[in-house]
Design a binder for these strands. Sequence first.
DNA 1: GGTGTTTGCCAACATCTGTTGACATCCCTC
DNA 2: GAGGGATGTCAACAGATGTTGGCAAACACC
Lengths: 199, 199
Amino acid sequence: MNGSDSTPTAPGSGAPRRSDATRGAILAAARERFATDGYERATIRAIAKDANIDPSMVMRYYRNKEGLFAAAVAIDLRLPDVSGADRRQDAGRILVEHFLDMWENNEVLTALLRVGVTNQAGAERMQGILRDQLLPVARQVCPDLEQVPARAALMASQLLGLALTRYVLRMPPAVGLARAEIVAWLAPTVQRYLTAPSP
Amino acid sequence: MNGSDSTPTAPGSGAPRRSDATRGAILAAARERFATDGYERATIRAIAKDANIDPSMVMRYYRNKEGLFAAAVAIDLRLPDVSGADRRQDAGRILVEHFLDMWENNEVLTALLRVGVTNQAGAERMQGILRDQLLPVARQVCPDLEQVPARAALMASQLLGLALTRYVLRMPPAVGLARAEIVAWLAPTVQRYLTAPSP
DNA sequence: GGTGTTTGCCAACATCTGTTGACATCCCTC
DNA sequence: GAGGGATGTCAACAGATGTTGGCAAACACC
């Protein structure tokens, strides 16, 4: 439940508009549709119907479908700091737990993953998240700076792979895993990708 | 390069038809389009154009778009046997190498992954592959039979996660990984998921 | 050589898509 | 209370999409 985050279009600036409720409803509906249907099948008409407004309002407030997607899917992973000496050796567990928390109650992540697979803009957005958010974390704990991108990519492959099988494809055995199980299995993997000496 | 596999529709049965060349061309074009565009954006018209035939031929030979997809994407991972005592402790490396071989020169896998994310039928197909092909491999090497599904799911999460970041999203650091690097990093992970005692 | 089936192309259909513009209505300001 | 901008509704557009049926040519078989 993301709710209505202050000002939908220009966060933190501009006076509140009378249409903020509508804008928020559109964004909420868009997030849900993009998450369940992907980019192509999430039609503007369906989103507008969910938000109980006219399709033309979507165009007025977000220019076009791409603009709507850009506004609806803004992701801040809020990755925790793991640079402390004590936390560094626990980075795997901390990150896996944080990732699960994020995915379990944030449909925007599922939306972006679904869209990123079939839409170029979505894919680039995901590349940006890896570069701007995941990579810095790897830099905090990785010994050799030159290996940071590779290690971040490895971490991403495992975490996104879990999200893919569990939240998108909903493979029964992946859905059936308990949270504690996932942490116990994946934490050492991520820890190794981040800190183990290059094999 | 999959080429034209004998009889496209009913494998291993029926006399060769005069239209086999056309059928094959359609399937090849469909595979490529589904792989690059996903299900929705891979239009029948575009596929027909690639195959240099009329769109109506696609409908004649494969009923509808779903039928075309079902015919175009039939996957046999040809997973190697790892039940031997010596191979069992090498299962991780063997499977990762085999997976890379498969993905590097088989666009059908990319097609299925792209479609599985936005299409229910595609998702079910992938679930079937996990159940019918990946799970038996896990059963060969996993000590506790009850844990087989969970371990197969873990293996799938890592392998599909790599495919996702490298072949679908094409995240630069994931694309930049050398084959040997991937094997060196992922083999121990898969090995642990399959054979390590439950953590 | 005539017959029936297969193969292919063409035109069209109904529907859905993103998108646009005109018009009515509300609310705030002077 | 009049004016003006913001907000919302309605109808329509142009194009694309899956799908269908009819019709000509090529072929196989007697």
